[in-house]
Computed example of a mutant assay.
Amino acid sequence: MNANDRTPADLLRSALASDPGRPLVTFYDDATGERVELSVATFANWVAKTANLLQGDLAAEPGDRAVLLLPAHWQTAVWLLACSSVGVVADVGGDPASADLVVSGPDSLEAARACSGERVALALRPLGGRFPQAPEGFSDYAVEVPGQGDQFAPYAPVDPDEVALVVDGVELTGSEVVARAREDAGRLGGGGEAGAGREAGEAGAGREAGAVGVRVLSGLSYGTWEGLSAGLFAALAGGGSVVLCRNLERLPEGGLEKRVGDERVGVVRR
């Protein structure tokens, strides 16, 4: 973490400069058995490609509003940082009818059609797979993103004091996102107090909670700040990593405790 970081994209750049090979996001989907692990470098590459797609093919500009109709997923995390890189407002679960563009998962395509601007669809299939046939009226993210550039440079500087994120109806500037993320990272373990982020009664939780770089397992929705922070932003701000779990309720008895141990999780949020 760099004290001069003022946007979420800045946090990612600092993480990339300090330790590109460390794990950042490990994603599980317990409905499909999928597990994906992304290092800082791999995650940043996806962000750069997606930001190039946003700024280039989709002609998004700073201040444009992108409604994200997506679950807590590693590709959603990529879109959140890509929006920050361009200066586009990431409106999580907002109204597509008032958006400049919409990014939708397979379960929200009909709602997404209310957007009169650009529409992008994510199949959310294992290994970032594409739709068997792209939904009518949408670009298939898995088709469009691979050919994008691996380096990104915004056409205009991103203002940290402009709105960067809307979640649960609350607008946050880039600098406010960073400040909140830093505070949360401290509570999760970066503040130096042993057990700071432990969830009471959770087997194995808190093992690493006295140190910067805590590994957080989150089964929370991205529809609240708590879920976004536990599932992405606090890890970026605190030099940690996240085990992001979708359909966590599908785990068999004892499965959560095993995952906590296997993934060396320090804090559990669900």
Score class of each variant (00 low, 15 high):
A3W: 14
A9Y: 15
D10V: 08
D10I: 07
S18H: 09
S18P: 00
D19L: 00
D19N: 14
L24K: 03
E34N: 04
A41R: 12
W46C: 07
K49R: 15
K49Y: 10
A51M: 07
L53Q: 12
L54P: 02
Q55V: 07
D57L: 09
H73W: 06
Q75S: 09
T76V: 03
C83W: 12
S84E: 03
V86F: 02
V86R: 00
G94W: 06
P96K: 09
P96C: 10
P96L: 11
S98A: 15
S98Q: 15
V102D: 09
R113S: 15
A114W: 13
C115H: 06
A123E: 08
F138R: 13
S139A: 13
S139P: 00
S139I: 04
S139E: 08
E144Y: 00
P146W: 10
G149V: 00
P154L: 11
P157R: 13
P157H: 12
V158C: 14
A164D: 14
V167K: 01
D168V: 00
G174T: 09
V177D: 02
V178H: 03
V178F: 04
A181W: 01
E183L: 11
L188D: 02
E193I: 06
E193R: 14
G195D: 01
G195Q: 06
A196H: 04
E199T: 14
A203G: 07
A205S: 15
R207N: 10
R215M: 05
R215Q: 05
L217N: 03
L217H: 03
S218C: 11
G219T: 15
L220S: 09
S221N: 10
L228Q: 07
L232N: 08
L232T: 03
F233V: 01
L236R: 06
G238H: 02
G238E: 03
S241L: 02
R246F: 10
P252K: 13
E257I: 05
K258G: 11
G261F: 08
R264Y: 08
V267H: 05
